[in-house]
Design a protein around this nucleic acid. Sequence first.
RNA 1: GUGGUCGUAGCUCAGCUGGUAGAGCAUCCGGUUGUGGUCCGGAAUGUCGCGGGUUCGAGCCCCGUCGAUCACCCCA
Length: 418
Amino acid sequence: MSKFQAPKGVSEYFPDRSRYFEFVRETLIDSARRSGYQLIELPVFEDTELFTRGVGESTDVVSKEMYTFEDRGGRSITLRPEGTAGVMRSVIEHNLDRGQLPVKVWYSGQFFRAERPQLGRYRQFYQVGIEAIGLQDPEIDAEVIAVADSAFKKLGLKNYRLEITSLGDSQTREKYTKDLRSYISTLDLDEATLARASINALRLFDDKREEVRALMAGAPVLMDYLTSESSAHFDRVKECLKEFEIDFQINNRMVRGLDYYTGTAFEFVHQGLGAQSGIGGGGRYDGLMSQLGGADLSGIGFGLGVDRILLACEAEGIQLPPNLALQLFLVPMGELAKLPAVKLAQELRVAGLSVDVAYGNRALKGAMKAADKSGALFALVLGENEIASGLAELKNMRTGDSTSVTLRTLQEDLLKLF
RNA sequence: GUGGUCGUAGCUCAGCUGGUAGAGCAUCCGGUUGUGGUCCGGAAUGUCGCGGGUUCGAGCCCCGUCGAUCACCCCA
């Protein structure tokens, strides 16, 4: 065993599981592309203040989970704990919002939070996210939710549910929070719980203890405080989701970890992931952009946890589509065939085919086994006989049939097949 | 960050009240002068996470440490 180990709490993906990871990530991204979102590629570290101002000082993410360090120029730098603040920064910095609205972008990559690791909760985790900026229409809220939902359906996930709510505008929230706090102050709660409530009163709704849940049953409900505009917006979102045939559940006690959410908020929860059940979440943010020094534009987006979605797929026993990456596996027989084989492989690759070669001096049986393992669709043995005659057997690895081909026309023949 | 459980071959795990390691799968070779997936035979593989302690003797007991995992917390 090596003396080096991966740092605590990171997930790594290597063959063969990396193929599964890739499949999940690409499916998510594909769904975003299909709805007109374009890639925005951003740094994994930012000025610390971007997160303290954007995400909110009172959140756990900012107050105790950030990887913050000083760079050589004495700047305070933080590894991104979430994606939206960075996107806003870039949009403002490069005036992307000066053109046609909305700005629709997707991103993917690693995020960092210094938490105690658990299955599905990592210090470095992978997210795919989208943001649609500069549009108030409730239809775009539904679109964002639908991008995530259709990706999950494409993956074949079944045991998940979508929860939605509306958090209202900032004034509504203020008034509601005040009432909620005064309600909580009438309850008989221990000190730790009260401390939790003082940071974010909504969190008590999430408490795992039955007693606390029972006490909170009588608490005021945010939904009752919504202005008529907020209600109408939310109704329209729900209407759209129904039209899209996306099932959802209203959760008027949803707790979001980031301060900037207003209006529509949603969460995808998977059954069977233990305590870390959230596979994605997002919502609308009205004040974020102006707070970061940009125009007063609203936006909506989500972040999906690729690590957790992968776990969810595995939990549901979802099979990976067969590996179609390799089209041909070449098996040279004997020393004399080696150079012609690698030359042929290289020519075919340049022509656009995907080809691997059985290297090493393995017995034919071993080489064929390697061909099988590679997942290649075809195998071709190239020995002295083939080189002399210019004829070879092209074996279909799926069916086991082989057809006679001339080496001279192999390239065309293969290109015709794919 | 707090508490519990766990850490043995590449993987999944067995290993009795302490007597110096085993299975299945995977790998490699062969049964079939040059054709994989099944079957059969054979081979190779371990600082028993790491460091210390107790003991004649530690995979097993004790302490520390690293990691995973579960719950809390939090969330993707």
